[in-house]
Computed example of a mutant assay.
Amino acid sequence: MRPQEQINYIELPAADLAATKQFYTGVFGWVFADYGPDYIAFANSGLDGGFYRSTLTSKVAAGAALVVLYSKDLAGCEKRIVQAGGNIVKPVFSFPGGRRFHFTDPHGNELAVWSEQ
């Protein structure tokens, strides 16, 4: 039974679904399933979700929610993101409880990664 009234799924835009799959699989190990030409679902991410074909992007400055991922190795994760074509848009900074940075994926969606260290 699924928990009631809790966040269950998240969807993000992406113009190039093949490149999106390659980025998130390579950097984070997510697993994808294709649902037609305009939608891919992901799993093995902590919270399941999907990407729908769109030229729009999800950015905090535009009012979008920020998806925050966790990594035990913040520096290693940052390096993998950059090597895979992502951009660091907010360098590592401290906050109560840990440190984090923000990045954009190759499509331009903004996400963050945090760690206790």
Rank of each mutant, 00 (worst) to 15 (best):
A65V: 15
A64P: 03
W114H: 11
I81S: 03
D16N: 13
E116N: 05
K72V: 13
V67G: 02
Q4W: 15
A75L: 07
F93R: 13
F51S: 01
F101R: 05
G63T: 03
A64Q: 03
R80G: 10
N87L: 14
G98L: 04
W30L: 07
D16Y: 14
T55N: 06
T55Q: 06
K90T: 07
G86C: 02
I40D: 05
V68D: 08
A15M: 13
R100G: 10
H102I: 08
G46M: 04
I10T: 09
L12F: 15
R53T: 00
P91S: 08
I81V: 02
H102P: 10
F23N: 13
T57R: 00
G29C: 11
T20R: 02
G29Q: 08
K79P: 15
D38M: 07
N44Q: 01
Y52H: 05
D73Y: 00
S71M: 04
G98N: 04
G86P: 04
G97L: 05
Y39N: 07
K21Q: 15
F101Q: 03
I40L: 04
A41H: 12
L69Q: 08
L66W: 06
F23M: 15
V92I: 06
V92H: 03
R53M: 00
G49M: 10
P96L: 10
K79Y: 15
Y70S: 07
R99Q: 10
A18R: 09
E116Y: 08
G85N: 08
G49F: 10
G108R: 06
I7H: 15
F28K: 01
E11D: 09
A41V: 11
K21Y: 14
I40S: 04
L56S: 08
D34W: 08
G97D: 05
K59P: 06
A19K: 12
N109G: 05
V113C: 05
D38L: 11
K79C: 12
D48Y: 06
